[in-house]
């Protein structure tokens, strides 16, 4: 395995939420006990539901295992039919999910996408594009089964929760669209 610092170089996360005075928030995952790391963990736990019920150690695990990718407005993150081995957490920005010409969902900070292909072990069923300057964490499928069960359980529960919200909203949309006479 490559050095963590290669995979996850000195980060300036989260760019959008900090002003220039806090540029010392750069962190290095090789120094897990550094104050900037503690700071980052606190921020993730405080601002992202995904991390709320996780311990420091678990958050560090996820940070170690995830990649960071940034996209410009209009850039494609993945396309319908692509193989899907990771899901994404939006650190900031906005992502549009569509199939053909149909926009299926618009997701913002703190929301996950791409989890369906990961759970189903199937190709992407829709296309994801950045609708704004967007930073995402990409998390490999392995985290659900191969790291350790308590973390897998928490991640799976988070994904299930988000899926449930999406399904509810989509059901409402279906209900609404067929209520409206054309």
């Amino acid at each position: 395995m490559s050095k963590i610092s290669d995979k996850f170089p000195q980060a300036d996360f989260p760019q959008k939420e900090t002003d220039s005075s806090s540029s010392q928030e750069n962190f290095d995952l090789s120094q897990e006990n550094s104050s900037s790391m503690t700071n980052l963990i606190g921020k993730l736990r405080g601002n992202y539901d995904f991390f709320t019920d996780m311990t420091d150690k678990e958050i560090i695990w996820i940070l170690r295992l995830c990649g960071r990718r940034s996209y410009k407005q209009g850039q494609t993150i993945f396309q319908e039919g692509d193989a899907g081995n990771c899901f994404y957490l939006i650190v900031y920005g906005e992502v549009v999910i569509s199939r053909g010409n149909t926009e299926l969902a618009r997701l913002g900070t703190g929301e996950c996408f791409g989890e369906m292909a990961v759970l189903d072990d199937a190709p992407r069923s829709a296309t994801a594009k950045a609708a704004d300057e967007t930073l995402v964490f990409s998390v490999e499928r392995d985290i659900l089964t191969d790291v350790f069960p308590t973390l897998g359980f928490k991640v799976a529960a988070n994904l299930a929760k988000q899926l449930s919200v999406k399904l509810r909203e989509t059901d409402e949309l279906i209900k609404g669209s067929s209520d409206t006479p054309i």
Binding site: T102, L104, E115, L119, S125, L144, A156
Partner: peptide, 19 residues
């Protein structure tokens, strides 16, 4: 939980297809 998440994913697939 993974079983439940998978089922949710299938249902969302169906709902997206309907949309």
């Amino acid at each position: 939980t993974l079983s439940i998440a998978r089922q949710l994913s299938h249902k969302l697939h169906e709902a997206n297809r309907t949309i």
